[in-house]
Design a protein around this nucleic acid. Sequence first.
DNA 1: GTTTACCGGGCAATTACTTCA
DNA 2: CGTGAAGTAATTGCCCGGTAA
Length: 255
Amino acid sequence: MSVLPTSSTCLELAISIPGFVSSRSLPSSGDHTGNGNSMRMMMKDLDINQVPRDSGGGGGGGGEEEWTTTVASMEDEEEETNNDGASGPPRKKLRLTTEQSRILEETFRFNHSLNPKQKEDLAMQLKLKARQVEVWFQNRRARSKLKQTEIECEYLKRWFGSLREQNRRLQKEVEELRAIKVGRCDEPLHSASTLTMCPSCEQVAAGTSTTMHDIDKGPIRTTASATNQTSLSSKVHTIHNHSRHPSAAFPHKIH
DNA sequence: GTTTACCGGGCAATTACTTCA
DNA sequence: CGTGAAGTAATTGCCCGGTAA
């Protein structure tokens, strides 16, 4: 795992987390209604599979116009119209009805991809083409993944920020300890009354002939810094422990 | 058993259309 | 009314696994 700030002043991250799998399609009950379009759709519950037969005229007539379903016929028309050159008619875009969207979302909750039979059945139920159902699921998976990525990115940004803050505090503490060490240059180095080790380092030291940790090489605790809430060594240990698997602690998962 | 060609499905990137503020 | 932003349906191109020859 590496979290590399692209710049020191910016929180943009270049992240690579070995073994971290980003939101492998799981049934979702969360965000599927989250797109802002549902409100628009509610307000304008128009069956956009249908277009006015007289596309040129009318002008705001609206409700009384005669509508004709284009979905089923669009493909047929495609084959005809595609022949007449590169500049064919402008691509018409389907807008799903609220009911179609609801059913698609409902299906997506239980199944993030469909087999051909399911696709065909759903298409028939929704009066859409199988290809349209397929495209919807494809786009829906992409949206789901995007949302998950955004959440993870947000989390990593916060994590990076707290690590940076932690690092800043530790750097400061190191400076303080260095200052203390320099100030005591004259004193004997084996002053056990003023320098102690953290328990784990003490164990290691007991098995060796080490009598003193260099501040740059290993943890050291002074009576002065011990009066602070946490020692440098314990902080280092904390960071070791906490920093190892940040991705394991992702609080939110989109399903 | 291995290689090759073909096919279908999924995905990323992109385009294009629609709606709204 | 024109415009930009946002949302999303649709397209394109590539990759990969399965399968038959």
